[in-house]
Design a protein around this nucleic acid. Sequence first.
DNA 1: TGGCTGCATGTAATCGATTGCATGGAGGCG
DNA 2: CGCCTCCATGCAATCGATTACATGCAGCCA
Lengths: 354, 354
Amino acid sequence: MALTRKSPTIQDVARHAGVSTATVSRALSMPERVSQATRERIAVAVTATGYTLNQAARSLRRQRAGTIVMAMPNAGNPYYSTILDAVLAEAGHRGYGVLVSNRVQGDPTIWLRDYFLSSRADGLLLFDITLDVSGMRRFMEERGNLPIVVVCDEIIEPGFNLVTSDNREATGRAVQHLVDLGHQHIGLVAGPTIHDYPNERTLGFRQALARHGLAMREDWIIAGDHSIGSGYQAGSQFVALDERPSAVVCANDEMALGFISSVQQAGLHCPRDVSVVGFDDIDMAQYVSPALTTMRQKRAELATISTSALIDIVEGVRDPAKPVRIILRCDLIARASTAPPKGAAVRPAREFRF
Amino acid sequence: MALTRKSPTIQDVARHAGVSTATVSRALSMPERVSQATRERIAVAVTATGYTLNQAARSLRRQRAGTIVMAMPNAGNPYYSTILDAVLAEAGHRGYGVLVSNRVQGDPTIWLRDYFLSSRADGLLLFDITLDVSGMRRFMEERGNLPIVVVCDEIIEPGFNLVTSDNREATGRAVQHLVDLGHQHIGLVAGPTIHDYPNERTLGFRQALARHGLAMREDWIIAGDHSIGSGYQAGSQFVALDERPSAVVCANDEMALGFISSVQQAGLHCPRDVSVVGFDDIDMAQYVSPALTTMRQKRAELATISTSALIDIVEGVRDPAKPVRIILRCDLIARASTAPPKGAAVRPAREFRF
DNA sequence: TGGCTGCATGTAATCGATTGCATGGAGGCG
DNA sequence: CGCCTCCATGCAATCGATTACATGCAGCCA
C-alpha cells in the first residue's frame, strides 16, 4: 500500500503563495477582504498543493461543526426516504453535512449529548414522534436554548420549533371522504400512541366520527405501529371480526398496504368489501392494486422547510424568541381503494347522512 | 432565550478533580492507565460539571473523525432504507457516526474531497453503482490508500474493497426459475448501464438465455433506471409490443412493482398473462398483489459486513494489502407473480429443454 | 508637508483534547 | 542500603484554522 502522505495544510499554501496563513484563511472564507492579486496567487497555491480544509480544525476554532443531525425512530421505514433525500439536498445546498441517527434506546437526551453537545453537530432535526419531550426540555433549560426543530406527525407542546402536517384535520377529511361515499361504519388502524396518549391522527378520527354522529366501536380501532407487518396483522384481526366496518382509515400507507394485502389474501376484495384510506402518499401508493386512496403529506416540503429553519436558527438568522411553527395541509388523493359501500346503490352524498 | 452557557471542557473537569488534563484524558480513553481512586474522582467531576467531550478537538488531535460517509446515488429509494438501518446500527455499535451523502453531480471525487480528505470522515461506504472508478483510482493513487468499501450490485475492477451480491449468477437463477416453469420467451426490464457497459444483472440475463438456448430479442430488453416510475413506463412499452414474452425479469423490485401495476392497469393479468420476477426482496414485495417472486438480496448483511470491514480498515485492523472481497449469494423467493405460461398444461420441468 | 483614514496583510493567541517525555514515589532485589 | 524498575501523574507541545489586534503603506485633504 502506498504511504498515506500527510495532507497539505494552510501553512503549505501560505508558504507556496508567499503570504501568511491569516491571508490564506481570509482568501478562502472572506475573499472580498483580500486583494485581487493575492487572491489569485493563493488560488494557484491551493491547486498546486492540493490543499483541502481540515474541518476538525475549523470546527474547533469556530465552535461550529457544519453538520446537523437527522434523528428518526426507524431509518428502515421507506417513509423517511423522500424526507432524507430532501434534507440532504437542502443541507448540502447550505453547506452542511447530515449525520443520521436512529432511535437510541433509553435516555432520549443521548442524542443531544452524543452529537451536538460534543460539537459533532450544530442542530437537531427530530423526527421521533414518540419521544418524551419532558426530559429534553429539562436538558435544554439547563443548557440554554439548543437548535432543535421537531418535524413529525404530532403537535408537541409549545415552545419547540415545529414543522408538521395538519394531521388531526386531515384525518377528519379522510373520514369525510368515506362518509361522502356513503360509509356509516368506519374503523381505524391506528399508529403508535404517544406516552399512553392517542396520537393526532387517532384523535382526528375520533372527533370526525363524533362530528358525523357515527358510532364509535372500540373493537373497530386496531392498534398498529406504522409497519407494513402491523398493517397485515390488523387485516387479520379485521377479517376475524363478527361485524365489520365497511371502511377503514389507516394511520399510514404502509399499514394500509399490509392491511389490504391481508384482507385480500383472506378472500375479501378492496374496495368492494372494504374501502381503505391511507396516510402519507408514499411513492408506492399509486402503484399497488388497488391504487391507494390516501392523504398526501408534503414530505419533501416538510423536510426542506424544517432543514432550512434549523440552519437559520443555527446561524442566528432567526429570532430564537419566536419559535418556528409551520403546519402544512395534507391533500386527499382519491384512488381505487375507496368506493361506496356494498349495499349502497346511488348515494346522494349529503342527504343520507345521519 | 437563555444564554448558551459555555460547555465545560476537560480543563474544568481536571480542576474539579484536582488532577491534570492529561490524567482526565487518560481516564476517559485508557482507564486502565489510571489508578482506581483517581478514576473515581474524575468520574464524579465529569457528572458534576456535565462535561462532554469536544469531538472537533479530539478529531483534530487524533487525526481521525470518528465518522464514516455513506454515499448513495439516491437516498429517496426505499431500497436503501434497510441498508441505512443496518449501517447505522453497526457504525453506532463501533462508536462511529454516519454522514449521509447523496449523489453529487459532476466530479465523483467530490465526495473524497468534501468528506474525508477534509477530515470530516475517516472512510467511505460507496453505494453508487454508476460511479466512474477511474477518476477515483487516480485520486487514490495520488493520495495513498484511502479507506473505501464499495457496496453495490456491480463487480468493480479489482483492487477495491468490495462487498456485494452474486448478481450475475442470481439473475441466471431467476431465468432458470422461469424456464423451469416452462417459459421460453423471456424479457428484461434492465437497470441503468454503467458507462455504456451493461450491468451485471443484464449480463447475467443474457448469459442465462444463451445457456438455455433461448432467443434473445433486443426489443424485449427494456431500459429502466431502478425507479418505480421507470418500471411503470416499461410496462407501457411491454403492453405495446406486437409480440410479447410470457415472462420478464426486472432488475429490481421497484421496477417490478411499477411494471405489474402498469400491465394490470392495461388489462393484462399477472401472472396469467405475464410472469414477473423482481430483484432485492424489498419489504413491500410480499405485501403487494400478486406477491412478488424475487431474488432476495441480503441487504442487511451486506450493510453490516461492509460497515464493519470499513471500520476495520480505518482502524488499521485489517491488512490493506488484501482488499476485502465478499460476495453474498441471493436466494429465490418464489411467490405469486410467477406461474407457468398460459398455453402450458402440465410441464415436465427439465425434459422440454434441449 | 503633516496628519488622518482605510485597506491589505502579518503576528500570535486561541479553540480543547491528546500524548511523548519527564518526574517522583513505591516497591523489589542483591 | 543502594540501585533499578514500574506505575501514576504532570508538563507542555501539538493538531490546523481562525481572528483580534497591530502594522505599514497609499491616498487624501488642509
